[in-house]
Design a protein around this nucleic acid. Structure first.
Lengths: 125, 125
DNA sequence: TGCGTATATGAACATGTGTTCATATAACAT
DNA sequence: ATGTTATATGAACACATGTTCATATACGCA
């Protein structure tokens, strides 16, 4: 989390490359720092039980804050904080109807991410 | 992270359900606690820049620890710790050849997760 | 206007996390 | 045997994170 490097960055290990060709292949296939950063951030946000439950629920139905809280057994405050985090990453979007805020998934890709993810974890169960 | 509940879990808000039918739909579509927990854990692990870079690299080529460290400009120790975390979640697997350990992605689903994820973040760039 | 309901948000706190540094293990070469 | 290379791991530290509690905003109704 902190970004200090005293030991060995640059030469990494004081070690030679074992297979420079493969390393070069990967280097070519590597995505931009920004894209990787955003993807990591996306996964990080979804890597919390409360937030993933909320996001998964919203992939099924549009829900208001309060129904989310009731459904998941989480406090209204916690839900609201979580929704903010999800919103900032553009994972959910909402519309307001009077005092009620209705949230949905912002992006179909996220639902696909869940499908693919559940296929992965089902092999671990 | 801590699991204390003093304010309002159970009745959540002191609020009524706004749309019980939608809530019931979601309840039926909900995955098991275990599956959701594992998926959250998977995303959490991939939600770190160093680990996602490593995992993405390994989705392209089989690499030894040292080449990963050189490629990414990260210390050998940090790579090794990261690989352990990825291993524990069965995201990567390795084979040993003498003193060299070669790592790869353990699961094709993870590569799909990257593809889908990058499709999502490309819309944010 | 005043009251209740729905949501948002800031501060504080306890807990979790990633890196580094130091060191261990283990294979290979000389 | 001894030294060198490749990897693994534990402890420690600085920092990030999620929840709660308290409160704010803002809409709707009497």
């Amino acid at each position: 989390m902190s970004v200090k490097a005293t030991q060995s960055v640059g030469d990494a290990c004081e070690i030679q490359f074992v297979d420079e060709e493969k390393v070069e292949n990967v280097r070519r296939a590597m995505k931009s720092v920004e894209a990787i950063g955003l993807l990591a951030e996306t996964f990080r946000i979804l890597g919390d039980p409360t937030r993933i439950k909320i996001a998964f629920a919203l992939s099924k139905e549009e829900l208001c804050v309060c129904d989310i809280a009731n459904l998941l057994g989480v406090s209204q405050s916690a839900v609201s904080h979580s929704l903010r985090t999800l919103r900032q990453m553009k994972l959910v979007r909402f519309r307001r109807e009077g005092k009620i805020a209705y949230y949905t998934l912002d992006d179909e890709h996220i639902a696909n991410l869940f499908d693919e993810g559940f296929r992965h974890v089902e092999e671990l169960l």
